[in-house]
Design a protein around this nucleic acid. Structure first.
Length: 328
DNA sequence: AAGCTGTGCAACCGCATTGGT
DNA sequence: GACCAATGCGGTTGCACAGCT
């Protein structure tokens, strides 16, 4: 497929920072058309701007659009970005759809300048969201090989969907997280369910399962609520965004580590699967309490009858978890 | 005060994807 | 299905600014 020549290569087309006059001309043009641009390529000529159409689009979407939120990111926004990044990777535009008034460019910049460094200081790999070896910590602090079941859960969910995570995949993970919360903070149960998800991830790692799930407004409601699924290191730390990093590191170190993972030289996707596999092999706990599991399956059953929410019967991710749950 | 360095962010660039013919 | 124009996306760059020496 041939690449179209970009108008930006035309001689005489202005580049660089936009002036107030240019901003005004662009805003007025778009407002005159009722907020509907039509053709970006034709916009510069029609509006009298000596700019590339691409440049106009970028200026509008990243700066001039009236619904853009200004100011610092809140703690909740930061957590949401981290959670979504753990599942989606650098899909900035997808992440931006879940943060009202924030642009993909803004989120990307914020990630690269703030969050990325923060995670490195915590000893968390900002790409894989896994614990880094002690010698790779940004602050040089040593840490035990802390392990987070919920991080694994994220990984498992992402791997289950073959890397092509869509809103349905996020919903699966979020619903699973909510179920875990509903059951309570029983670590044994959490680990068990994480194992089930990990096993499922191994079985389906190349499958690219795309579940038939939720309506967009349900997705928005849940993903912006307090119960969205977070990587384990977030749920282990209260007030992540504003907390002193040394203190956070100490909290991480103080957590007992049920398992370790070695991932040097492994591609991220493979690393996810390897870690999931390792955890599943070493830490399946048939001694998990029966009562919480009954509660878990009890919570799932009525959801099967909720039209438009999810179709558990036709979705092997949930089916496998359900079957495995009953087996215990 | 001048120079250096680090940081944050707007904007650019090139490839990927989408949609129309 | 092939082709091409238009748009979208993510990585990268460059500049302004602040803080430090």
């Amino acid at each position: 497929m041939g690449r179209s020549p970009c108008c930006c290569h035309d001689a005489g087309v202005k580049k660089g920072p936009w002036t107030e006059e240019e901003d005004k001309a662009l805003v007025e043009y778009i407002q005159r058309r009722g907020g509907h641009v039509g053709s970006w390529r034709g916009l510069p000529k029609a509006s009298g701007l000596n700019r590339c159409g691409k440049s106009c689009r970028l200026r509008w979407t990243n700066y001039l659009r009236p619904d853009i939120k200004r100011g610092n990111f809140t703690d909740d926004e930061e957590r949401l970005i981290i959670s979504l990044h753990a599942a989606l990777g650098n899909k900035w535009s997808t992440i931006a759809t879940q943060l009202e008034g924030r642009t993909d460019n803004e989120i990307k910049n914020y990630w690269n300048t703030h969050i990325r460094k923060k995670l490195l200081r915590m000893g968390v790999d900002p790409v894989t969201h896994q614990q880094l070896p002690p010698d790779q910590h940004l602050d040089g602090a040593s840490a035990s090989a802390a392990f987070f079941p919920e991080t694994l859960l994220w990984t498992a969910a992402a791997a289950t969907l073959g890397g092509g995570l869509d809103t349905g995949a996020i919903m699966q993970a979020q619903l699973l997280q909510q179920l875990l919360h509903a059951i309570g903070s029983n670590n044994t149960t959490t680990n068990l369910i994480a194992n089930l998800a990990a096993s499922n991830a191994m079985l389906n790692s190349g499958g690219g399962i795309v579940p038939n799930l939720l309506l967009q407004d349900q997705m928005n409601m849940l993903s912006t609520g307090a119960n969205y699924l977070q990587p384990g290191y977030l749920s282990n730390i209260s007030g992540f965004a504003g907390q002193d990093m040394v203190q956070q590191q100490q909290q991480l170190i103080s957590s007992p580590a049920p398992g370790t993972s070695s991932s040097a030289g492994v591609e991220p996707a493979d690393q996810h699967r390897d870690t999931a596999a390792e955890f599943a092999l070493h830490d399946v706990s048939p001694a998990a309490d029966r009562a919480p599991l009954e509660e878990f399956t009890g919570l799932l059953e009525p959801m099967m009858d909720m039209p438009g929410l999810c179709s558990l019967e036709s979705d092997s991710f949930w089916n496998d978890i359900l079957k495995d749950s009953y087996r215990f």
